[in-house]
């Protein structure tokens, strides 16, 4: 896979960010995920946990155990023999109720681009997204592959509360949320899927590297699906791409 020379960016004495790039790019993200998996397999003493993102991997370390020069040498060795995962990604079909109380910014997004709300939904649903990272709060999926023709900059004043399951866009990023959270993104709809449920096995459904497709459902279908999800059912279909 495409090799990039990483930058080692110190995050105090307890972490280092291994940065491969500064942009949103599927190849770059795939490199981060492959490196993260190889680093986990390497089980380097002093590495507590790792966090892959769009473009970097944060490595949390025990400063009393880690040997930073040896760690950097090891990272270069891991990168030199890095192989991309051969397994096809899981693809999740995520049901979404768009607009109205479920997606209070849908009308604004349509108006901003001079298209109908149906067209915004069509464009949002016609993409296959890649889950670039989970971050911010438990189970939040940050997606790449959003349609730039419906992109809008973040809101000037963020909302202090947006509901669990919110499906939104911000710039050229797309997101589906798991828990109630503040957000400056544009809310298109809501999914009953709980990507984070501490009492369910598995606790998380969709993971980094998976693919996501949104499927519109009528508001009338919400109550049944939401009840099923609350009872621990995934209510998201998974297919192998």
């Amino acid at each position: 896979m495409s090799l990039r020379v990483p930058r080692f960016l110190p995050c105090g004495d307890t972490a280092v960010t291994v940065e491969f790039g500064t942009e949103i790019d599927d190849g770059l993200n795939a490199l981060c995920l492959a490196f993260d998996a190889a680093l986990t397999d390497a089980a380097i003493p002093g590495v507590i946990e790792t966090l892959p993102t769009y473009r970097s991997v944060l490595v949390q370390v025990d400063p009393l155990v880690i040997d930073m020069p040896a760690f950097e040498t090891r990272v270069h060795a891991i990168l030199a023999s890095l192989k991309q995962s051969g397994a096809p990604p899981r693809r999740w079909i995520i049901p979404v109720v768009y607009g109205g109380a479920f997606g209070i910014d849908l009308d604004d997004v349509a108006r901003s681009h001079g298209i109908s709300t149906e067209e915004v939904i069509r464009r949002h649903c016609s993409r296959t997204y890649r889950v670039a990272m989970l971050g911010f709060l438990p189970g939040f999926c940050y997606l790449s592959g959003a349609d730039p023709s419906i992109a809008l900059p973040r809101r000037i004043s963020p909302r202090l509360k947006t509901p669990a399951g919110t499906v939104s866009i911000g710039g050229v990023q797309a997101l589906f949320a798991s828990v109630e959270a503040p957000s400056g993104w544009h809310l298109l709809g809501r999914t009953p899927v709980r990507n984070f449920m501490p009492d369910r096995d598995p606790v998380f459904l969709v993971g980094a590297g998976d693919e996501v497709v949104f499927r519109p459902i009528p508001a009338a279908a919400w109550d049944d699906l939401d009840a099923a999800a609350a009872a621990g059912r995934p209510v998201a279909e998974v297919v192998t791409a």
Partner: peptide
């Protein structure tokens, strides 16, 4: 604005 990356306690 940066493309989101990891945070630590004390950032």
């Amino acid at each position: 604005n940066i493309v989101s990356d990891g945070i630590v306690t004390g950032s």
